[in-house]
Design a protein around this nucleic acid. Structure first.
Length: 562
RNA sequence: UGUCCUGUGGUGUAAUUGGCAACACGUCUGAUUCUGGAUCAGAAGAGUCAAGGUUCGAGCCCUUGCAGGACAACCA
C-alpha cells in the first residue's frame, strides 16, 4: 500500500508538523515519530475519522516514523469484532498499512492493572464505595468544587486488598470503583478524583470473561500510548481538558523516558451532512438511509460505495488542513477532489438518463456504423472503444428545446449540433402524443461531417447519445446531498435534524447505456459523458446493472439557467 | 458567576516567528474545446473580532473587553 502524494511539495507546515519538526531538531523524542490511530470499535468510520487516519499515518509517512492501529476497546458493552473488521477494512482501503502493529488497549489490561497497583501504593489511587449517584452529587459543577469521598483517605493496604478482590470478582457490578486521588476542588472536572476502573461483568471481544474490571479511557489511553512508545498522541479538541489528567498519570507513574505527549486538533465538519455516530445511527435505524454504507452516508463505507476513491479522500484530507479552530468544510471541496481524480482516471462512456427518441430520417434503415471513441481524452494512451451508431438513437430530453433562450447551444428546430463521435445533425421536426409531449425528434445528418474527417465545419453544441437498437438498460441511482440545509444540526429547539433531510437525495431512473459497458464489474468507475461520474453498485446483477452517481460534472449551463 | 481552547476574504488553511496578508475551494470574466467537462489566462472579494498599548513598524507582543466552543458517564 502506498501513499506518496505531497511528499515533495513545499507547503507550509501545520501546527502539529511544526511541533514535530522542532522535536526532531531538538531531539526531544530521540529522533522518532510514532503516532497511532485509536478507534473505539463501536461504530463505523466516517470522513472525520478519515481525516484523522490520513493525519496520523501521513505524519508517520512524512517523518519516516510509524503509525499504529490501536483499538481502544475498554468498554466491552459497546464493542465487538464486526466493528474491528469494518474499521480495518476501511483503513486499509484508504491506503494505509499498520504492518504488524495492530494493537488493542485490551492487550495491556495486565500491565494497566500493575500500574494501578503502583499508584495505590503511592497513595495516588483509592477504592471508593460511593454509588454512582453519590459520586455525581459529590463531584460539584465546573464552577463549584466537589466534595471528597469518605473513602479517599483509607489506607493504601486496604485499597490494595479491595482492588485485588474487585479483580477476583468478589463484589457486584457498580459496587466500587478505583479512583485517582487528585483534587476534588480542581476547576478541571477531569482532575476531581476520576474513576480509573469500574466493575463490569461483560464478556470482552478479545479477553472474554478473564476480567470483570475494566479501565476507563483516560487511564487506559495515555498508558497505552506509553507502552507503544508513541511520541505524538494526536486527538480531537474535546480531549483538550483531559490533557492535564493524561500528564498527571504519566507524572505519578514516574515516567520520564519516552513520554508521549497529547496534541489536539479540530475535528472535521462538512456542510449538508451530519457526522456524529449517534445521528448517523439514527438515520440508519429510522430507515432514512438503507444502511451504514448507503452512498449518501458520510461514512468511509458509504463514500466507497458512492464511488469515491481513496486518493480523492486523501487529497481532501490534505486540503482541509489541520488547525485548532472549529471549521465547516464546504461539500464542494470534497466534490472537487473526486472530480479531479476521476477526470484523469475514469473511463468515458455515453449514457442517456432521461431519454427521448431521435430519428435521422436520411440515414439508411438497418445500417450500423461502428464508431471509434476515446476511452479517456485526458489519457489518449488508454485507447478506443467501439460505439455503434444507427438511424434511431436516444438523446437526453433536456438537450432539446422547442424555443430555446439565446445561449442554448443544444438542439432546437432548424438548429445543428454534433452527435459526439458521429455526425452533425439538424433538427427538422418533432412528433408528439395527444398531450403534446414530444415522442420523437426528426433530424437529418450530413455525411460529410463524420468525426475524424478533416475540415468539417464546427457547431457550438455536442450531444451524447445511444443507439436505440444497441442500448443497454440499467438502473441508475442519482444521489444528491442528504440534507437540504448547510448545517442540519443547527436548529431551533423544536426542530429535529431529520426535518432537514433532502427528500430528493435519491432518485432512481432507468438509464440507456452504450453497449461497451456490458461487463462492468462492481466498483468500476466511469464518466457518463456530459452528466457525471458513476460507479457500479454491489446490487448490480447481469440482468439488472446498477450504477450510482458519485457526483455530477460541473455544469456552467445549469448555473446560467438559474 | 469556574477552567481551558479558538477568532484572518463566502469556506478552509498560510504568513520566513515583528516587515506593506498568500494559497486552495467557491464566485465572476475571457480564450480554447467534438463533454457548457477538462485546460489556459485573468478578476472580484479580507486589512486580520473590538478598543487601547508597546514599537520606526503589529495578523503576530501586552492589557481589557466581545463572540464562539469544550468540560459536571462507573462512555470514548
Amino acid at each position: 500500500m502506498e501513499y506518496k502524494e505531497n511528499t515533495d511539495k513545499v507547503t507550509s507546515l501545520n501546527f502539529i508538523e511544526q511541533i514535530i519538526t522542532r522535536d526532531l531538531e531538538e531531539g526531544n523524542t530521540g529522533g522518532r515519530v510514532h503516532t497511532r490511530f485509536p478507534p473505539e470499535p463501536n461504530g463505523y468510520l466516517h470522513i472525520g475519522h478519515a481525516k484523522s487516519i490520513c493525519l496520523n499515518f501521513g505524519l508517520a509517512n512524512k517523518y519516516n516514523g510509524k503509525c499504529n492501529l490501536r483499538f481502544d476497546d475498554t468498554n466491552p458493552t459497546k464493542e465487538n469484532v464486526e466493528y474491528v473488521n469494518a474499521i480495518k477494512e476501511d483503513v486499509r482501503w484508504l491506503g494505509f498499512d499498520w504492518e504488524d502493529r495492530e494493537f488493542y488497549a485490551s492487550d495491556y489490561f495486565e500491565q494497566l492493572y500493575e500500574m494501578a497497583v503502583f499508584l495505590i501504593r503511592k497513595g495516588k489511587a483509592f477504592v471508593c464505595e460511593m454509588s454512582g449517584e453519590e459520586m455525581a452529587a459529590a463531584r460539584g459543577t465546573p464552577a463549584i468544587p466537589g466534595k471528597e469521598s469518605p473513602w479517599r483517605d483509607r489506607p493504601a493496604e486496604e485499597s490494595l486488598d479491595l482492588f485485588g478482590r474487585m479483580r477476583k470478582g468478589e463484589f457486584p457490578d457498580g459496587s466500587m470503583v478505583l479512583r485517582a486521588r487528585i483534587d476534588m476542588a480542581s476547576p478541571n472536572m477531569h482532575l476531581r478524583d476520576p474513576v480509573m476502573y469500574r466493575i463490569m461483568r461483560a464478556s470482552h471481544h478479545r479477553t472474554g470473561d478473564l476480567w470483570c474490571i475494566y479501565p476507563m479511557y483516560d487511564w487506559a489511553h495515555g498508558q497505552s500510548d506509553y507502552l507503544e512508545n508513541i511520541t505524538h498522541s494526536i486527538c480531537t479538541l474535546e480531549f483538550e481538558v483531559h490533557r492535564p489528567l493524561y500528564d498527571w498519570f504519566l507524572d505519578n507513574l514516574e515516567i520520564t523516558e519516552n513520554r508521549p505527549r497529547q496534541f489536539e486538533f479540530a475535528r472535521l465538519n462538512l456542510n449538508y451532512t451530519v457526522m456524529s455516530k449517534r445521528k448517523l445511527l439514527e438515520l440508519v435505524e429510522g430507515g432514512h438511509v438503507r444502511s451504514w454504507d448507503d452512498p449518501r452516508m458520510p461514512t468511509v463505507s458509504g463514500l466507497r460505495r458512492r464511488g469515491f476513491t481513496p486518493a480523492s479522500i486523501r487529497m481532501f484530507s490534505d486540503k482541509v488542513g489541520v488547525a485548532k479552530r472549529e471549521n465547516v468544510i464546504d461539500m464542494a471541496l470534497l466534490e472537487h477532489c473526486i472530480r479531479e481524480d476521476l477526470n484523469k482516471n475514469a473511463r468515458r462512456v455515453m449514457g442517456v438518463l432521461d431519454p427521448v427518441k431521435l430519428i435521422i430520417d436520411n440515414y439508411p434503415d438497418g445500417k450500423v456504423e461502428e464508431l471509434n471513441a476515446l476511452c479517456n481524452p485526458e489519457r489518449p494512451e488508454d485507447g478506443h472503444r467501439i460505439v455503434p451508431f444507427s438511424k434511431t438513437l436516444w438523446i437526453e430530453r433536456g438537450d432539446f428545446m422547442e424555443d430555446p433562450p439565446k445561449k442554448f447551444f443544444r438542439l432546437s428546430p432548424g438548429k445543428e449540433v454534433r452527435l459526439k463521435y458521429a455526425y452533425i445533425i439538424r433538427c427538422e421536426s418533432v412528433d408528439r402524443d395527444e398531450n403534446g409531449k414530444i415522442t420523437a425528434i426528426h433530424c437529418s445528418y450530413d455525411p460529410e461531417t463524420k468525426s475524424g474527417l478533416s475540415g468539417t465545419r464546427k457547431v457550438k453544441g455536442t450531444l451524447h447519445w445511444v443507439s436505440a437498437g444497441h442500448a443497454l438498460e440499467a438502473e441508475v441511482r442519482l444521489y444528491d446531498r442528504l440534507f437540504d440545509v448547510p448545517n442540519p444540526d443547527d436548529n431551533p429547539e423544536d426542530v429535529d435534524f431529520k426535518d432537514n433531510l433532502n427528500p430528493d437525495s435519491l432518485r432512481v431512473v432507468k438509464g440507456l447505456l452504450e453497449p461497451s459497458i456490458k461487463d462492468a464489474r462492481v466498483g468500476r468507475r466511469y464518466q457518463f459523458e456530459r452528466t457525471g461520474y458513476f460507479c457500479v453498485d454491489p446490487d448490480s446483477r447481469p440482468d439488472n446493472p446498477v450504477f450510482n452517481r458519485t457526483v455530477t460534472l460541473r455544469d456552467s449551463w445549469a448555473k446560467i439557467n438559474k
